[in-house]
Amino acid sequence: MSNLLARYAESIFWLARYVERADNLARVLDVNETFSHDTKGYSNWESILRLYNDSEVFYKSGRHLSADSVIQFYVIDGTNPGSVLSCLRMARENARTLRPLISTEMWTQLNIFYRSLCARKEADLAEPKLNELCRFIKEGCQTHFGITGETLYRDEGWYFYILGTNLERADQTTRLLDVKYEILLPSPSHVGSALDVSQWNALLRSAAGYHAYRRIHPRGVSPDRVAGFLLLEQHFPRSVAACVCQAAETLVKLRALYRLAAGQGSEARLLAFRNRLTMETISAILARGLHEELDWIQRELIVITDSLGNEFFGCGTASSVA
């Protein structure tokens, strides 16, 4: 018999998602910085704005496009709900709500992490220091995941945490792939060039997948292989397929272990989604169009999130639980 409050389940689900989102945002900024150095004059900071559909808000607020302004917007701008700072603030607010449930270590680390990000000055954010900044954010997020794995009591709350992590990660990986694919594909003549290869390598590194990729494909980096790896590679923990499989397994286990009547619809949808992804090939996806496929995956993830919200949290989805 489970007595986990629905509100707590929702909070811990979103706690995981916000930290995962902050982690990925740091990865996107980091890899983008690498690209912007390699491609002379290509103002691809704009692509990040497009990636998160933020162009309008960004320009409306009177900002001008520059590396520093985009970085500020996505790192410490508290008015941008999609910034790292906002994500971590939401994560911390959720953690505050969850204080009775989570370990003291989890709370303390998140609290210190958030406070030290708040203490960063604008000067610390300038482009030359971006690398260090992204490393700081990634490390903070990874530490959170590590501490959670080591200290969080593994009852129902834990399952919702894992669900949140994986659904968010799947979504973020599609975004990472989407923007880079767009930048990298337009000139097919580049394919196989030194520049092209270094950019794909950077993309893989941003997803912490470079070495794993090399082990599977020791010879040569190509867009379709990289896309295939990030989308479908079952053994790579950041691939969409791996995340969706993990999410599906988690939900099945959660419902069975705690004999939950709720969640039937979500489970069915998630299993179907997993089945489709595990049987997919990258050539078939590319033939249909990668953009469209990524769009579909993102929409499917939203539907599943809504369904979990309706069936477990009792109030549809609310991405802001502060």
């Binding site: 007595n3 705690y258 004999r259 009547a261």
Partner: peptide, 24 residues
Amino acid sequence: PMVEGRDLFVDANHVFMKTINGPQ
């Protein structure tokens, strides 16, 4: 468990909390 008012409801003079597995 630490609850807020919105986590509880009363039905036929009994108090329940809203959990992931329905009212307890």
